[in-house]
Computed example of a mutant assay.
Amino acid sequence: MFEIIILLILSAVAYFITAELIPNLSDLFIKAGLFGIDLCKTNKKKVPEAIGVVSGCVFLVTSFIFIPIVFGNGLMDTQNFPHNEFAELLAGLLSICCMLLLGFADDVLDLRWRYKLLLPTMASLPLLVVYYVNFNSTTFVVPIPLRQWLGISVNIGFLYYIYMGMLAVFCTNAINILAGINGLEVGQSVVIALSIIIFDIIELRGDQYKAHTFSLHIMIPYLATTLALLKHNWYPSKVFVGDTFCYVSGMTFAVVAILSHFSKTVLLFFLPQIINFLYSVPQLFHIIPCPRHRLPKYSEETDLLHASRTIIVKKDMTFITKLILQVLTMLHLTDKVEDEDCININNMTLINLFLIKLGPTSEVQLTTTLMAFQVFCTCVAFVVRYPMASYFYDS
């Protein structure tokens, strides 16, 4: 408990430092050419970009300062020093640090999408190595209805490491593709971080006390610095967070999911991001034409956002494209306008889906609605994790 109190104090200090640093460093980013224009505003002033590197650096420094506090007693007694726990923390911070560096490089160099898949994979290697050395558990418990065919548990071996590597890739990119309006990237990350912290607190009384304590050591300073960033990124946004923040956030969630052994629960907290990814798959894989930006379309006359759209040329349509369009139309998941030569549909993101269901909406109202949906999905996740889990598992 003493360690958590110290961590809360350090995190509070980190919040105020981050909140002060961001406006003070904004001009430096603009002078360095790291700025963008808010396409959803009539005011076309320069907005500093990649500011997520500031909150990420403060988060890491806070975590580094906390190391001698949490392991102070072990330093005095080297024979009983918890080497495994120390290695886990260092590996987790190393992976996050790698994503901070690679994310900032992406913001500066504007890397192609294939590198966005490769970078998290490389950064997750320290995690996988430490997991192999400390645990090397590649067995998962089979749900009760399937045990008559598969048994109580199944060892999937090397495939488990592929799954963990893919988890890191998904977490980093899932936040990145559900983005584009003020406060959305940071807001959804705050809700996910709070969900993990609540889950950790609930589970502290269980037999995985150390794992959830480790998770709290990571998530509390992350939440503090992210809240400070949200203060400046909320509508009307004074800064853009960039891919740096999305990468750091995704890797932070992957670190606690893998090393604290509750990856399935973390995925439950990513329900909106999973829905957005599945809905976006036809465009991400270019089955349906995908423009470079799928941001909502801003109307200066009404100051409202409308769903952005893409055009499908009928003569270029494949069988798979036609099938997907039929399914989407049947499920009322697209707004389709058709003529003799072309089909005009909304871009396939959760943001645009909300806009075609709710109608033209102000940016702040849209962000608030999406955040409310994130909170609702968190409630669903807790229902699945606790009351419903007893139907599929013994405890």
Score class of each variant (00 low, 15 high):
Ile5Phe: 15
Ile5Val: 14
Ile9His: 08
Ser11Met: 03
Ser11Phe: 00
Ile17Gly: 02
Leu21Met: 10
Leu25Thr: 05
Ile30Gln: 13
Leu39Glu: 08
Lys44Ala: 10
Val47Arg: 14
Pro48Gly: 13
Ser63Gly: 08
Asp77His: 15
Phe81His: 13
Pro82Asn: 14
Asn84Met: 03
Ala87Phe: 11
Leu89Ala: 11
Leu90Pro: 05
Ala91Arg: 09
Leu93Gly: 10
Met99Tyr: 03
Phe104Lys: 11
Asp106Glu: 11
Val108Leu: 13
Trp113Gln: 15
Ser124Ala: 15
Ser124Ile: 14
Leu125Ile: 15
Leu128Asp: 14
Val133Tyr: 13
Asn134Tyr: 06
Thr139Val: 15
Thr139His: 07
Val141Ala: 09
Val142Thr: 12
Ser153Lys: 11
Tyr161Gln: 07
Cys171Pro: 01
Ala174Asp: 06
Ala174Leu: 03
Ile175Ala: 01
Ala179Thr: 04
Gly187Thr: 06
Ser189Asn: 10
Val190Leu: 09
Ile192Ala: 11
Leu194Cys: 08
Phe199Cys: 14
Leu204Ile: 02
Asn233His: 00
Lys238Gly: 07
Val239Asp: 04
Val239Arg: 00
Phe240Asp: 05
Gly242Tyr: 00
Tyr247Asn: 15
Ala257Thr: 06
Val266Pro: 04
Leu271His: 06
Gln283Val: 10
Phe285Lys: 15
Tyr298Ser: 02
Asp303Glu: 12
Asp303Phe: 02
Asp303His: 07
Ser308Glu: 00
Ile311Tyr: 12
Ile311Gly: 05
Lys315Gln: 12
Leu325Gly: 04
Met330Phe: 06
His332Val: 12
Glu340Arg: 14
Glu340Met: 10
Ile345Ala: 07
Lys357Trp: 10
Pro360Ile: 04
Ser362Met: 07
Leu370Lys: 01
Ala372Arg: 08
Phe373Leu: 07
Phe373Met: 11
Cys379Asp: 14
Val380Asn: 01
Ala389Ile: 03
Phe392Cys: 02
